[in-house]
Design a protein around this nucleic acid. Structure first.
Length: 341
DNA sequence: ACAATTTGACCCGT
DNA sequence: ACGGGTCAAATTGT
């Protein structure tokens, strides 16, 4: 069994196992007087996600290069033996050891799962697209790309050093449509910031992050918005090229009720009203900026907002969408051999 | 003061 | 040699 197949196998087992666990929890919730509707919905969402991830893996098992997006598992892509972990380098010159390690990393990164998604932003519609995969990203570079109008931004997982998580992503604004950003993800998250912190941030860092992000999002989403999301969310699988699959999540232009800005964190915020704390973070990490900003400022706003969104999270995770607000398109071509291939 | 971002330099692959 | 990806010091933000 090669590395990719092994990864798929482990991921599949993990997804199914977690599905069982969450189903058990849901059953207990049904018999618990203390259980809230929100918790039940959250569990339901997670179960749905597990099934969907499993399905994706099975459907794509013949195409080991591309992986289901951003499963927060230890994929073993970058082993812990790699010691390029932020230890201070002496000057610009890298030691021989570092050099050797870098070579190893480069080789491994070549085999890392890579996929691209497109996220659309527009003044009329507000933010369109998944922007919260529950992961937080830190920008570490920006480059002007030959032939591209806009620079490419490079992000790595905030927890690279803390949790040895080597997931990265690149954000490239489309030349053709400046409101479209292509996000290329590379590598899977080893960290536990998404799946687990969504319910209960465990580490101090996560709690701190949660507190930070909580300040941004208090009470700013309406149920109507989320209902609209549910009604209109679609997943397109038009390939951007032969090697990568683009997931273009189109949200309806119905966010006019939103005001105020803010990240949508990947955790449960006690200040979030209603039952959508998790769903919101997963399905729509928007700021409602489209309505409150002048078109005049669109250019800079898009970059700023998108940067904010991407630096906190972006979502390749189809399965992390709330059951409330995400439904698979009946025409979703799971059988398309190019999907994730 | 600490954390995040910016940006020029460095390194590797082609 | 060139382009893309990453590093890390400097800068900016909270």
């Amino acid at each position: 069994m090669d590395c990719a197949s092994n990864w798929e196998y482990k991921t599949l087992i993990n997804e199914l196992t977690q599905g069982i666990e969450h189903t058990k929890q849901l059953r207990e919730h049904f018999h618990s007087a203390a259980s809230t509707h929100e918790n039940q919905e959250l569990l339901l969402h997670k179960i749905f996600s597990h099934y969907e991830q499993s399905l994706l893996i099975l459907k794509c098992s013949g195409s080991p290069v591309q992986s289901p997006p951003a499963l927060p598992l230890s994929s073993g892509v970058i082993e812990s033996s790699v010691s390029v972990d932020g230890s201070p380098r002496s000057g610009k010159k890298r030691s021989f050891q570092d050099h050797q390690e870098f070579i190893n990393i480069s080789k491994k990164r070549k085999s890392q799962p890579t996929w691209t998604e497109q996220v659309k932003v527009s003044a009329e519609t507000g933010f369109e697209g998944p922007t919260d995969d529950g992961y937080s990203w830190r920008k570490y570079g920006q480059k002007d790309i030959l032939g591209a109008k806009y620079p490419r931004s490079y992000y790595r997982c905030t927890y690279r050093h803390m949790q040895n998580c080597w997931a990265t992503k690149q954000v490239q604004r489309s030349d053709d449509d400046p409101t479209v950003f292509e996000i290329t993800y590379r590598g899977s998250h080893n960290c536990h910031q998404a799946t687990y912190s969504a319910l209960q941030p465990t580490s101090p860092a996560e709690k701190q992050e949660s507190m930070k992000q909580a300040n941004y999002q208090a009470g700013q989403y309406s149920n109507q918005v989320l209902i609209n999301l549910k009604a209109n969310l679609r997943v397109n699988t038009d390939d951007v090229d032969t090697n990568e699959t683009a997931c273009h999540f189109s949200f309806p232009p119905t966010f006019s009720g939103l005001t105020g800005g803010g990240y949508s964190p990947s955790f449960v915020s006690p200040t979030t009203p209603g039952s959508n704390y998790f769903s919101v973070s997963s399905s729509c990490q928007m700021n409602g900026f489209g309505m409150v900003h002048n078109l005049h400022n669109l250019e800079s706003d898009l970059s700023d907002i998108f940067s904010a969104n991407t630096s906190t999270a972006s979502s390749p995770i189809v399965g992390k969408f709330s059951l409330d607000h995400f439904e698979l398109d009946p025409n979703f071509p799971f059988n398309n051999p190019n999907f994730f291939s």
